Computed example of a mutant assay.
Amino acid sequence: MGHSQELSELKRGTVIGGNKSIWEISLLLNIPRSSVSGIITKWKQLGTIATPS
């Protein structure tokens, strides 16, 4: 199993604001493609990148 760590708001914003493919964003930020995809999906469904508190 992998180690889970919350991404910074800056990285989440970069995922949404970047006009690149999931693969390119993953390489740029050195995070898994599944994380990038999950952030984009959450943003599309909920309109937010904030983590629940």
Score class of each variant (00 low, 15 high):
M1T: 05
M1S: 06
G2C: 06
G2Q: 12
G2T: 06
H3F: 04
H3C: 02
S4N: 10
Q5L: 14
Q5F: 10
Q5H: 15
E9M: 11
L10M: 09
K11Q: 14
K11M: 04
R12H: 01
G13W: 02
G13P: 00
T14A: 07
T14R: 05
T14D: 07
I16D: 00
I16C: 02
I16E: 01
G17L: 03
G18Y: 00
N19I: 05
K20G: 05
K20V: 08
K20T: 05
K20I: 09
S21C: 10
I22C: 05
I22S: 06
W23V: 09
I25Y: 13
I25E: 10
I25H: 13
I25F: 08
L27N: 15
L27V: 11
L28A: 14
L29P: 05
L29A: 07
L29Y: 13
L29F: 07
N30G: 13
N30D: 13
I31G: 11
P32C: 14
P32E: 12
P32A: 08
R33E: 15
S34A: 12
S34C: 11
S34F: 13
S35K: 09
S35N: 13
V36A: 01
V36L: 04
S37Q: 07
G38F: 08
G38D: 09
I39W: 01
I39D: 02
I39L: 06
I40K: 13
I40R: 02
T41M: 05
W43I: 01
W43V: 02
K44C: 05
Q45P: 03
Q45L: 08
L46Y: 15
G47R: 12
T48F: 10
I49T: 03
I49D: 04
A50S: 15
A50P: 05
A50I: 09
T51F: 11
P52Q: 13
S53N: 12
S53T: 07
S53E: 11
